[in-house]
Design a binder for these strands. Structure first.
Lengths: 301, 301
DNA sequence: GTTTTGAAGTTAGATTTTCTGATGACAGAT
DNA sequence: ATCTGTCATCAGAAAATCTAACTTCAAAAC
């Protein structure tokens, strides 16, 4: 009960901050926000009873006590790291296969994979594409990223992000059309979609969204249909019309301004992306790392 | 991002469990429940990938890996402890004065003080009694335990427990009276109280409680008034009547069966005990220790 | 050969801690 | 003077942790 050890997570935050002389970088290293690290360090300083850093607008600077403490903390954590890796089971899996649709792979996962590989250089990740929406089978790989409502039978699943539809088009296509509140001009553009036009009105969410955009009926519109969403996006970039697509898939094209959003109006559907895997893999550290990375990365778009 | 340190709080739990070869004792040392420690250790074993203990019904036994790891962990924590105490402000106060009412001191605090002294042998605690309910002044001591609604002016306060009234009497007094749903027999017993009978109906809660017990009016009852609540309890133990008292003050007498509860019906008031001190003392480690101990101890009654 | 006891594991749900995201303040750079 | 980069602060949200009740198991006691 007589607690003689300091709050350990605060000490870890202190070590990282001391190593980088910068709270933001320490925060990134620890995978949390800068505010969190700032609070942790403040907590430690309070617990110990003296300042460990001098703060200035250049970053952090050790006080005498801080420097002395840092040396000891590094030593202690070094011992711990060494001991931990010494007894960690050496035969844990360090590679896994993730199964995704080609659109998700192309428009979201691949551009971000480098980041994952930098953060976990010792994990080998393989990407496998499949077009079977919704279904996941053991033979697909260790984990899958699947679109749906969250029901994946006997598999364990975690929702990653709700789906959100946005309407985009090439900038050149719309640059001389004033952004029109009623969006009536949209009916002049071909609507690029990835499903059969006749079915659109039946997909939950889509019909509502078109109505939200002011389009009462589907009949008057010109559709161009593609089999994959990445093709829809490519066509939009080419200036072939207005595309109705998942936000996360066009996020990069939007920020690079290859396409522009025709309206602020978006619709959030009940369906979305989920990470799916065998329940027995829930505790696999490699898969947990991947899941955490995915959630963070999707949150930042 | 590549986290190479194990979950530190789990490591601390492991160290304590390893030191005691027993989860329950480790839990007590850490001030948490046994289940919590069990979970922490399980978490660490999962993270590392191998068992650290062999469990049997005699306690815990190290596996080879566990023993090796324990040695390293002890070293690392030793370094940390040494460094922490080296830079911890050496002039921290190690003693404090707590100001309480005589009833609270006598019926609750004193019997439990030994426990506090065992858990923090290096903290000197002095108890000072006062009868000024509700008020706390700097000259009273470093902290006070005060009864009220939580408004203590410029002082910082933390609620420790809501007040709860119970009706008790000596066992011998009621052993031949069948426990009566209507509690009408209570009106035959003198009611032992610590405030003027005429005022009882005006104290928030008391009137409601008497009504809850089926007593419509105060007039028909015989009151015996005492100036301190501990006297009320003493009188109840002596068999002088039924006493209406704060639950936490009679808890010991109830469990020792010096008195018995006349009814399951209790009433929780809006007022209660609070720990009060100067705001500047909020971060004083000694006072924090005391506060934590108080809350835990009151929770277990 | 039962029953009791003591130890630890296992849960769901509650609680507490920690984190986020937005904001504000500050100082040196442009 | 306004930016820019830095950290502190805060309320609300999210996540980790804890509790409390229950179960299991094996040795000890009867």
């Amino acid at each position: 009960m007589r607690e003689n050890l300091p709050p350990l997570n605060a000490v870890r935050a202190f070590e990282q901050a001391g190593r980088h002389h910068n709270i933001a970088r320490a925060a990134q290293e620890l995978g949390v926000s800068a505010g969190a690290v700032s609070q942790q360090i403040a907590q430690l300083e309070k617990w110990i009873g003296c300042k460990l850093f001098r703060r200035n607008n250049r970053g952090l600077e050790f006080t005498n006590e801080g420097l002395e403490y840092y040396a000891a903390v590094s030593t202690a954590f070094g011992t711990l790291r060494a001991a931990t890796s010494a007894i960690s089971r050496p035969n844990v899996r360090k590679s896994f296969v993730v199964s995704v649709t080609s659109s998700f792979a192309m428009k979201w996962l691949m551009p971000r994979l480098q980041d994952f590989r930098e953060k976990w250089p010792d994990i080998e990740i393989s990407v496998k594409t499949t077009e079977l929406f919704g279904k996941f089978e053991e033979s697909d790989g260790d984990v899958g990223i699947r679109y749906g409502t969250g029901d994946f039978g006997s598999f364990a699943s975690t929702e990653l992000a709700k789906d959100k539809l946005v309407l985009v088009a090439s900038k050149t296509l719309v640059q001389d059309v004033a952004l029109d509140e009623e969006l009536s001009f949209i009916s002049c553009l071909p609507l690029l979609v990835d499903r059969h036009p006749r079915l659109i009105a039946n997909y939950p969410g889509w019909a509502e969204y078109l109505k939200l955009l002011g389009m009462k009926q589907v009949d008057g519109l010109v559709f161009r249909e593609f089999s994959q969403q990445w093709m829809v996006i490519a066509a939009a970039i080419n200036g072939e019309g207005a595309a109705l697509v998942k936000e996360c898939l066009v996020a990069d094209d939007l920020s690079a301004e290859r396409v522009t959003q025709l309206t602020e109006k978006t619709i959030e559907l009940e369906t979305g992306y989920h990470l799916v895997h065998l329940p027995s893999n829930s505790s696999d550290p490699v898969i947990r790392s991947f899941k955490n990375w995915l959630r963070r990365a999707l949150k930042r778009n």
